[in-house]
Structures are given as C-alpha cells and as structure tokens.
Computed example of a mutant assay.
Amino acid sequence: MIEPLRIAVFASGSGSNFQAIADAVHAGKLDARIELLVCDRPQAQVVRRAEAAGVPVHTFRPKDYPSREAYEQEILGLLKSKQVGLVVLAGYMRILTHVLVNAYWGRMMNIHPSLLPSFPGLHAVRQALDHGVKITGITVHLVDGGLDSGPILAQRALEIRPDDTEETLSARIHPMEHELLPWVIQQIADGSMDLERYMNLKPKDGIKS
C-alpha cells in the first residue's frame, strides 16, 4: 500500500483553499495527509478550520523573530520532523527566503489568481480588470524565489464579463481554485505529475514567492 503524500499548507487568511484540500482528503478524493497548517496570523479563520479538521497548527508572529530566516528555520524543523513531502502555499502572504525555497525546491507550490506570467503579485484580479483583458484565470506553479515566476504546473481560464467587478470576478475564481488545487496535489500524489524533471533547475536568488 502506497503511503499518502504528506503535505503542509501555509495560509494567512480565511483558508477556503485549505478547506477544499481538507474536504478532498476527507472524501477520499486525495491520497494525501495534511500534516501541518502554518499560519502567520494566529487569529485567522484558517486556524479554526484546521482545528476543526484535526490538523496540527503552527502559528507565529513574525515580529517576535529577529529575521524571516529565523522563523523559517523553525518552520523547516517542523516540516522535517513531520516528513512533509509537499508544501502548498494557499493564500500565504509572507515573503519567503532561501531557507524554505531551497529546502523545498521542486516540492513547494503556490496558487495564484491569474494566468501567469500575466499579473503576478498582489491584487491580480484588480490588475486584470484594470488592464481590460477578456480572459483571466488561475495558475498553480512551483515556488522558485521569484515573484510568482516558478514553473507552471496547471492553469484554468475564465472569461471576464463586461459587468464584472473585483468582487464578482473573485467570487467566480475561488471555486476554480478549490477544484484545481486538490487536483494538482492528487496528480503529484499518484505520480501522474512528475516534479523530478524540475529538480535540475535552480531556484532564483530572490526571496519572494
């Protein structure tokens, strides 16, 4: 019997993508086990979601540490102790350093609400509307230390309606994220998506995910 993929989810906010992953695991649709939730905002809703799902939680306040590297070293120790094989950034709003990026190169992914390489960074939905594009979507990509610049694993497109606002477009994007993210994780878990081919590439020198 193949052991479930051990994953850790990093999130900072409401945790709807965390919930989608947890629900897929609970329903038997995802051959994975969430070993840890990492959250930089102890009062965030995602913490309550994880507790309800019985997932161990590590919360921290960045201001309590002398540097980003310091708290990432602590997190890295937890990931190693739990033998985490894949890190999933699902609305995690912290800048990452080489400590985590290098340690989990090829095994850390992020979901972003645009068709990368278009509209990286914050407020991607707003950027798409401001630029007047007709098609946007979502991207799951590996984290390489650049700004939403890692190798793309999967994308889904969505047509922008003439009357869309940032709120209405976001509301249609979120369900797509909730479907695509567990799907990509399952592709990795069952071997359909081989991340080994990315291992010869090198992370960038930057520190932003």
Rank of each mutant, 00 (worst) to 15 (best):
D23V: 13
D23Y: 09
A24Q: 00
A27K: 15
A27F: 10
K29T: 12
L30M: 09
D31Y: 12
A32P: 06
R33W: 08
R33F: 03
I34M: 09
E35G: 02
E35N: 02
E35T: 06
L36R: 12
V38L: 00
V38D: 07
V38Y: 00
C39N: 08
D40I: 04
D40T: 04
D40S: 14
P42D: 07
Q43S: 14
Q43F: 09
Q43I: 01
Q43V: 08
Q43M: 05
Q43R: 13
A44M: 04
A44T: 01
A44P: 03
Q45T: 14
V46A: 07
V46H: 02
V47H: 04
V47D: 05
V47P: 02
V47Y: 10
R48D: 13
R49W: 11
R49S: 03
A50D: 01
A50S: 02
E51N: 10
E51S: 08
A52E: 11
A52S: 13
A53C: 11
V55G: 06
V57P: 01
H58F: 14
H58T: 06
H58I: 06
T59H: 01
F60P: 00
F60G: 08
F60C: 05
F60Q: 00
F60S: 01
F60L: 14
R61K: 13
R61A: 09
P62Q: 14
P62K: 15
P62H: 11
D64N: 07
